[in-house]
């Protein structure tokens, strides 16, 4: 897997997302810019500029019409993917840590950060595709997260549930129509922040990454923890691969705690585990700092990692990746 280095950002990457058909990669960073890249060759095809703070999160709807972003400038912004035009800005009292479209693209959720005088909330908007410049100012749903603050959230299959991850290691399930609290579980160690939630292709289950050095595979229906992947480093991100039953984990110790040698030599690694057997299969080195995000092509052809080093590294899977199977899988 020879990587393609996507250079264009000048500061740490925060999130990387593929379009639904896998053709385009969107990346956002602390440099206040969103970039779009062709996944086939890594060529940059455009940028989306306007945010005036670190951009924490980005997502694209299933038809690749609209791009949503959230930032430290306390706004959620909506962009026309093709023209790069800003079509809507929603303003808040605190940072936006995560945005995500519903599976059908008809709704968008945002996670607002808890700050003095501001509650941690999950906010949901209905999205209008008939006239993309005419979006509701008012939210369709607002969930106030009373207990531990929410760090990440997303919609389950059929937009049935909203699942949120919190800074105390808990996961909560909400009714996505009414915002009613349904269930909660201590999926990770207490007071260990959940840094990422990513979905399986049909969103019936998801993977969480945590500072407790583990990732967990969890059922969206009953929040049961089905699988656990143990590493030796705090995790920032975890993704589920289609086609092959793998998960990819990314993380790394913060710069202060790392020896300068390992930082200089690009020793930060993406870790591959078998999704079902929970066994580590391999590692891919390259970044010169922690991996802040790992994303997988929905078609299963490639994966991309966004690093604290300011680079996106894009890897196309080779024959060895597809051909590898455990004996019991061949039965």
């Amino acid at each position: 897997m020879r990587p393609i280095l996507l250079s264009g950002h000048t500061r740490a990457l925060t999130q990387v997302k593929y379009s639904k058909d896998g053709d385009i990669i969107f990346s956002c960073a602390k440099d206040q810019i969103i970039s779009a890249w062709y996944s086939a060759n890594g060529e940059r095809l455009g940028t989306y500029t306007g945010h005036v703070g670190a951009i924490w999160t980005v997502d694209v709807d299933p038809t690749t019409t609209l791009l949503a972003s959230g930032a430290a400038d306390n706004t959620i912004r909506l962009w026309d993917v093709k023209t790069g035009k800003l079509v809507k800005t929603w303003e808040f009292g605190s940072s936006i840590k995560r945005v995500e479209f519903s599976p059908d693209g008809k709704q968008l959720l945002g996670v607002t950060e808890k700050r003095q005088g501001h509650l941690s909330t999950i906010i949901v908007y209905d999205i209008n595709y008939d006239d993309i410049e005419d979006q509701d100012e008012e939210h369709a749903l607002r969930i106030v997260v009373d207990e531990a603050k929410a760090t990440v959230a997303g919609f389950s299959y059929q937009s049935k549930y909203i699942i949120s991850g919190h800074d105390d290691g808990t996961i909560t399930q909400w009714d996505a129509k009414t915002g009613e609290f349904l269930d909660s579980t201590q999926a990770h160690e207490e007071d260990m922040l959940i840094s990422d939630i990513q979905w399986s292709p049909d969103r019936s289950y998801f993977i969480t990454a945590s500072k407790d050095k583990t990732a967990k595979l969890i059922s969206a229906t009953d929040l049961s923890v089905m699988k656990s992947y143990q590493t030796d480093t705090p995790l920032n991100s975890a993704a589920i691969t289609p086609v092959k039953d793998y998960v990819i984990l990314g993380g790394g110790q913060a710069a202060m705690e790392v020896t300068t040698t390992s930082a200089r030599q690009g020793k930060f690694e993406a870790r591959f585990f078998h999704k079902i057997f929970e066994e580590e299969i391999g590692r891919v080195r390259g970044h010169f700092g922690p991996l802040n995000y790992v994303a997988v092509d929905p078609m299963g052809k490639s994966y991309a990692s966004g690093g604290e080093d300011g680079y996106v590294r894009l890897h196309h899977f080779d024959a060895g990746y597809y051909n590898f199977t455990f004996e019991v899988e061949r039965d």
């Binding site: 896998g22 292709p201 049909d202 289950y205 078609m299």
Partner: peptide, 17 residues
């Protein structure tokens, strides 16, 4: 079980397809 009880026709193995 999850395909039968919850997903039905919405069961997907590869999202892009």
């Amino acid at each position: 079980r999850i395909v039968e009880d919850e997903l039905g026709d919405d069961a997907v193995e590869v999202a892009g397809l």
